[in-house]
């Protein structure tokens, strides 16, 4: 397993992944941005985004995915996502209420830009969940590698 992780999987898997991984990522971004008008949202979209990274990691080995996002990086992005969410909640207090929906309160229902700060909160959640899930994946993989070497 550990050797396979260095080199990645077979040519077939790599080719299919190369074709699909961008679409998966794009779909995740779509789910996040349309979270307030279609099913899904920050959490679901964040999971899909994390899955695209996990897909890369499994198919191409860890060097490719860690070149894009390291474990340290996931920690930073996760904390930033949480702080962004909290900051949006606290900025609402400036307008009177915790979590006040202070942007575009007069939007047309169904339009993309119609829900004030909720899309921004979805983005914050997606950062937190996506980075957090990928970080958990990297941690578990590291533990598995450690156990494989011990055997």
């Amino acid at each position: 397993m550990s050797k396979e992780r260095e080199r990645g999987m077979s040519v077939i898997v790599k080719t299919v992944t190369r074709l699909t991984v961008g679409l998966i990522l794009l779909y995740g971004v779509y789910v996040v941005l349309h979270g307030h008008i279609t099913p899904g949202g920050g959490f679901a979209g964040g999971v899909i985004i994390a899955l695209s990274f996990i897909n890369l990691d499994l198919a191409f080995g860890k060097r490719v995915s860690s070149g894009i996002l390291s474990k340290e990086g996931t920690g930073v992005i996760e904390a930033m996502g949480a702080l962004l969410f909290l900051a949006l909640a606290l900025i609402g207090m400036k307008y009177g209420i915790f979590f006040k929906n202070f942007m575009h309160p007069d939007g047309e229902p169904g339009e993309l830009v119609s829900a004030g700060i909720i899309p921004l909160e979805n983005i914050a959640i997606a950062l937190k969940v996506g980075a957090g899930l990928f970080g958990i994946f990297l941690t578990l993989i590291a533990a598995q590698k450690f156990e494989a070497e011990k055997k």
């Binding site: 920690g75 949480a82 909640a89 207090m93 209420i97 915790f98």
Partner: peptide, 22 residues
């Protein structure tokens, strides 16, 4: 009374800032 949410918000912010500035 708008300050009540700060009981949660401030420790939460501290928690994630501690993770950011580790």
């Amino acid at each position: 009374e708008g300050m009540i949410p700060l009981f949660v918000a401030v420790p939460l912010a501290g928690a994630f800032l501690a993770a950011l500035f580790k």
